[in-house]
Design a protein around this nucleic acid. Sequence first.
DNA 1: CGCTGATCAACATGGGTTGTTGATAAGAAC
DNA 2: GTTCTTATCAACAACCCATGTTGATCAGCG
Lengths: 161, 161
Amino acid sequence: MNTPARLIEDLRSRGQRATPQRHAVFEALWENRSHPTAEAVWATVVEHMPTVSLRTVYSVLGELVAAGEITQVDLGTGASRFDPNTSGHHHLVCDRCGMVVDVQVDHDDVRPTNSAINHLSADAHRARDGDGFRVTGTQIVFRGMCSRCDASDPPPPPPHT
Amino acid sequence: MNTPARLIEDLRSRGQRATPQRHAVFEALWENRSHPTAEAVWATVVEHMPTVSLRTVYSVLGELVAAGEITQVDLGTGASRFDPNTSGHHHLVCDRCGMVVDVQVDHDDVRPTNSAINHLSADAHRARDGDGFRVTGTQIVFRGMCSRCDASDPPPPPPHT
DNA sequence: CGCTGATCAACATGGGTTGTTGATAAGAAC
DNA sequence: GTTCTTATCAACAACCCATGTTGATCAGCG
């Protein structure tokens, strides 16, 4: 994502308003690599602006996603997570505490080959008609356990925000 | 997953009961490559056993997942999907209609190298302590549009079950 | 200053999933 | 067939995440 200052400029140029709430959400996300949930973002914002509502945070996050400034990722950890790092990268997820870490991958040119599509259902066959599926994005998720969870068997540590 | 007949045997050997409802769910999943949601499984089952409740289908699906007979995949299409194909493969998802197709991948040895883990947060650093993250599974999701959706601009076709 | 968009609190709604209840059905073992 | 016990049923309620709604208030911007 762009810097908070830049995002504020963009708002003005689009005729939207540079509110302190929006700015606070921008700041909470800027250089944030923890892949926070909406609630986690809200928790950060509220530290400095106690009156901001969770509803407003959801709105601003939605705007940022729509503008392509951040990415909304659903890694099956219950709630959506928001990632200000929009450059190509992948994720490593701890299945116990939900912690998410950015990773780069050896073969970043991973692609499904049309010839390799197998086990085709009737729908899949139809999907391949007319030059087949058009792939617009690739998401790689590595699942497992972080060393902290791996070390402490039960009970699991509190879920990572 | 194993054959319905085999799963019935397994139930008996575990002291559980081979009910027709369980059998019907097994049959609905057997060789089913459509990645059905719980409701879709229920719809199939109900065709032959109209009295089966959705609640029971959820229970049986949960048992199968726990037994490792099927995989529960969350591909961000709203509801969880259930996949009786537990052998290593990946998925291709249409972002418009939600259709899911199994795919094989060129480089199936895709791995995150410890040296390639970057942008580490404090938590991630801790995660790498003691030999780092233990990766137990890799999930690759290709996103895009199937040809059917690609051809018909708006409005989108009915969501794929 | 005035217009209007943004935010607020509080609430309702929605989908997906799980839990609970008490009653009933029906496997499994004998 | 009898008995014991598990599954299932229907009908709920509850949960979480997310979004929509309301009417009032605030405040950015020209």
